[in-house]
Amino acid sequence: MEFGEIVSVLLQGAVVTIQIVAMALPLAVLMAFSFGLIRLYAPAPFKQIAIVYIEFFRGTSALIQLYWIYFVLPFFGITIDAMTAAVVALGLNIGSYGTEVVRGAIQSVPKGQYEASIALNFTSSQRLWRIIMPQALVNMIPPFGNLAIELVKATSLVSLITIGDLTFKAKMLADTTLQVGEIFGVVLLFYFVMAQFLVFFIRRLETHLSKGLGRGGLHS
């Protein structure tokens, strides 16, 4: 097989990988914020539910979660296609780690900020969204960036439930051609470039967001 052909097949796979990331990332962020906030502020029964979700998804393995959703849910009469299973499993998995990012960042905002916002008589939701969250967001960016990279890496697991992502195409090519070194070399490079792109994007976002905080003053 010509090298150009290999790359073009792999590119098709890369598109699928990017699609999954693009769908699972918003789900992960949504889960991270909603359950992170529930964990911090909601009354007891909701808090317990959040803890179960977080501990379950962090305590078991992503691949098992993916298999469970894809192979076991049909037994309960819930049949979902491979793509949905992939997005749900990865979104919930990365999201469970994200809850701790949200919680940690909110808790790292100095206590004096809460006190000042009480003294100025802000309501509790104004306190959270106008005073605490803008400061916590800046702290969240680097760990969320790392989670985004973990998500990109975790998408490779979907190849095991027959989704034609980058890893799947690579394995398919490797089984049919003999150019395994080239194939996997290119694939690794693809993933690496995606991760570096994320790193670049996250750094930009961080500089942009911390601008108001006066030369990264929050971290000083």
Binding site: K153, A154, S156, L160, A170, Y191
Partner: peptide
């Protein structure tokens, strides 16, 4: 940096398929 930002599964495949070469 390279090892950390590429998937373990692909690294497993890489070793599995390429080492015999």
């Amino acid at each position: 940096e390279f090892i950390r930002s590429t998937p373990l599964l692909v690294q497993i495949f890489f070793l599995y398929y390429v080492m015999p070469e």
